[in-house]
Amino acid sequence: MATLHTRSSARLMLTPSVILLLCWMIVPLAMTLYFSFLRYNLLMPGTEEWIGFLNYQFFVEDPAFWASLINTLLLVGGTLLITVVGGTFLAILLDQPFFGQGIVRLLVIAPFFVMPTVSALVWKNMLMHPVNGLFAWVARAFGAQPVDWLAEVPLLSVTIIVSWAWLPFATLIILTALQSLDQDQKEAAEMDGAGIFSIFWHITLPHLARALTVVVLIETIFLLSVFAEIFVTTNGGPGTESTNLTYLIYMQALLFYDAGAASAGGVIAIILANIVAIFLIRMIGKNLEA
């Protein structure tokens, strides 16, 4: 749609972004890859040497790696389950007409805007604290023994905190998709004799499929790198019970100063994220053509 002149200036305008992102992607990535093959301790500079896949071997043979991998999957899976099911339910609820709908909607989405360190601290201290927390008080009021959430079920606690923050995201996206559903379609289905549940099953749910997939993929990308919530609440403990891959790599790098092993872990994390990213990018790409 343009003349030659506009086309060449367009290329010029695109260049800074491309170069910046190219550097941002390639330089650190190459360094990570390189470090992952080195014996490289930050406290002993000058002793770096090429050790091939030893870092990977070390990382993979460490029982903490497998524990963290399982924790990562549990954390991502659990949060997805809670947010997707809860989000669908909430979205349908918010789609019904009722008094104060707009305000309730604001209340529901609010947690998404709370910075992770704040939400983690609020949950840790004021809600989940075994002595002074609100949950403990509620438990005692019912005559039950208060649960020391972060010590007894650390991973579940972190999952709950993270889910609280991401539930609004799922709700908002599913709600948006729900509202874009063509009313004519529903009415056509009604004319064809479908009841509320078969309309939901045959019309609404397939319509939501795309939005649900987007929610799952995007949340996965973000949830694979949950960090602050763990950093603030459990520090990955007790033991490795609430250590995810991100936290493990952080510990290797900045607490044990083992840059080599941390880099190997980083490469593994990148590979994991890419498995999800490929699907996501494909989906978004299809959307771009439409």
Binding site: L21, F35, S225, A253, L254, I270, L272, A277, I281
Partner: peptide, 20 residues
């Protein structure tokens, strides 16, 4: 699409080089 893919890179994957 490529720009999008850079966003998919987990931060922790480049923690060591960025710190250094």
């Amino acid at each position: 699409m490529w720009m999008l893919s850079t966003k998919m890179l987990p931060a922790v994957g480049v923690l060591v080089p960025i710190t250094l």
